[in-house]
Design a protein around this nucleic acid. Structure first.
Lengths: 228, 228
DNA sequence: CTATAGTTAAAACGAACGTATGAATTAATT
DNA sequence: AATTAATTCATACGTTCGTTTTAACTATAG
């Protein structure tokens, strides 16, 4: 029987690039690192993807498409159940962030590696990345926000938008810095195994996010003329 | 009269580097961009700072030293006032994050540019940056956490550590993405002037952070064998 | 077996990178 | 005014970068 020469070059490249981008960023990763890491020829990336930027986009699309679809499905199902009634904030937050975090346990659909890549990349300085992510995310974030507007009718929309932003930040750090934490301050808490730690992360993060989302509204210091 | 040739080359380099690093990241910024942007010779950076990495460190130190000192002073003053009694969480959060955010208004001590650079850099993939920041931050974060441990004696320390991490993430996004938000979703809220928007950011963020910090503790799903 | 499309291989391209060098210039000291 | 130290300058070095090119290989189809 013929031995398998290359178990799909494209996929090998994507896997390696995903990992390297996570560890060293886009600008910090060279094509030569990628190709030698994947055990393929240097020209393979340009042949299969055209350019380095296009490779990056492919890395994200491979994971984000399924994720965002799952998020929308979760939201759809909930709204179906609710039958016109507004959802609970906790449901919405779980549909968005919970679905994301749980993806980290699904090794075949990306696993922790992509999660951390995503967490880091949301603040990546490269122009094309942020615009790409913005485009790719826009519809989902919009849906998510609309649901929150409905669920929290007496919270000003501007406030909700900001808090979504804050939640994204907290989540990004939760994902990206599972070990960055350990660097900043050596600690000794919970020697529990990794799986366990990740499970708990989800619940920890969720209660933090919900606490922030439902926090009392800030009263701005000088009203400077009472509202009508 | 002799005209001023170069109003301190070092400072011009630091200013330009700070801005470029913020916009394009460390790897995405070249020495030639920096030097031509600052209007100095290419070799000036290596002469004054030695290496590109050392320049980056200088950029951070110039701002972080003062900031962290101010944070510690704020905390010291509060603890002085309290006289042994634990502080209120809101005080501690303000001493750490409030001092940071207010730095954005102080154009002479860094201004918004450095704030955004810092926000982005906390998730930077470059190894030397994270280790540098970890070292530079360690003492302050430690002090801050200790204060929180005292202020919230019945919250498990592990939980507090995580929530500090989440708060850092939310703050990082609050700072870095004041306009990234506008990209993700075009909105129309509050045409208020910039100064005003930034003032409000502080208050918005603070109530979100405190809401998250004081959120009810998560109860972990399957105890998998009842606790003793 | 031979044409044909798809993929991989080795090598090279020019451009841009961070850094180093040694002369020219400016400022300070005597 | 002469000497020394500090800074700026133009230029070059050796690497590494992303991409391209052209030839070799592999497989499928006629």
């Amino acid at each position: 029987m013929a031995e398998i020469r290359s178990p799909d070059t494209r996929e090998r490249i994507l896997d390696t690039a995903e990992q390297l981008f996570m560890n060293h960023g886009f600008d910090g990763t060279s094509m030569r690192q990628i190709t030698t890491g994947a055990g393929v020829n240097l020209a393979a990336v340009n042949y299969h993807f055209g350019t380095k930027e296009e490779l990056m986009r492919a890395v994200f699309r491979r994971r984000l498409d399924g994720l965002n679809e799952a998020r929308l499905q979760a939201l759809d199902a909930m709204e179906q159940d609710a039958g016109g009634k507004p959802l609970k904030p906790s449901q919405i937050v779980d549909a968005f962030f919970g679905t994301l975090l749980r993806m980290g346990d699904d090794e075949v659909r990306g696993g922790r590696t992509f999660l951390r890549l995503l967490g880091r990349t949301l603040t990546d300085p490269s122009e094309f990345i942020s615009t790409f992510l913005a485009r790719e995310y826009a519809q989902v974030v919009e849906r998510f926000k609309e649901a929150l507007f409905k669920a929290l009718p007496d919270v000003p929309k501007a406030e909700i938008v900001w808090r979504v932003h804050f939640m994204l930040g907290a989540t990004s750090y939760a994902i990206a810095g599972t070990d960055a934490l350990r660097v900043v301050t050596d600690w000794e808490i919970e020697p529990a195994d990794t799986e366990d730690r990740h499970d708990r992360l989800l619940e920890r993060l969720m209660s933090f996010l919900l606490g922030g989302l439902r926090a009392p509204l800030p009263q701005f210091s000088p009203p400077s003329g009472a509202a009508p």
